[in-house]
Nucleic acid binder design. Sequence first.
DNA 1: TGACTATATTCGCATGCGGTGATATAGTCA
DNA 2: TGACTATATCACCGCATGCGAATATAGTCA
Lengths: 116, 116
Amino acid sequence: MAGKKKQKAPLSREALELVAQRFKALADPTRLALLQALFEGERTVQELCEATGTNQANASKHLALLTDQGLLARRKDGLFVRYRIDDPTVHALCELVCGSLARRFEAVRAHLVPED
Amino acid sequence: MAGKKKQKAPLSREALELVAQRFKALADPTRLALLQALFEGERTVQELCEATGTNQANASKHLALLTDQGLLARRKDGLFVRYRIDDPTVHALCELVCGSLARRFEAVRAHLVPED
DNA sequence: TGACTATATTCGCATGCGGTGATATAGTCA
DNA sequence: TGACTATATCACCGCATGCGAATATAGTCA
């Protein structure tokens, strides 16, 4: 995106919509739970359902969205379909957000908890 | 988030919801346009409206959401309110996504455009 | 103090999205 | 080939969200 350091052309509305879609893919707790399980390694749908407490239909839908967005890849393995993380930025994005939230809530906690 | 390198406890549903909310704040093209303008520096609401083609009411609402999420900070300046980026991870997040999308579409372009 | 400007908030509407139950599709095996 | 298992897809529903118009609130100035 434009700004901050190098002078780049601002992103068009179309490009911003693509960026927004990418963030939207991550903007759901169920999908984040699936991703969290997948950070551990490739998993079948069933394994993901067990790991996240999601039902099969719902998991399939979310997995399809993440795959369409290019974040996951899938492969058939007999009866099974195995999903894996396909875009390394996913983990980095989550880490950035977690770090930011941790700092934010640490600042709030420090404000509320009296210093001994 | 859990996985990938160090073994951390998986995030609770509550934590995942907070992470999702943060991504959701970024999952809208109008809000991304506002952020893009703010990457250039502090701006009033009117300046942001002009930069992004958003009407005042809509901009105010989006700015409030971004501020509530801790991404922006604001200060009164007479009649004016000036907004600025308050969380440095915002720019990093956008850059990560832009990089990922650029690679993705470069790969598609390379696939479709014949090599001379 | 009233007129004006800047901004925040409210309200109504339309669209989008996540979850669930049901069904379709695909692969394996006896 | 039918039974079974794994997964994708469909249809429906209720809730969430973005937009624009209208209104409320805040600050400045003559």
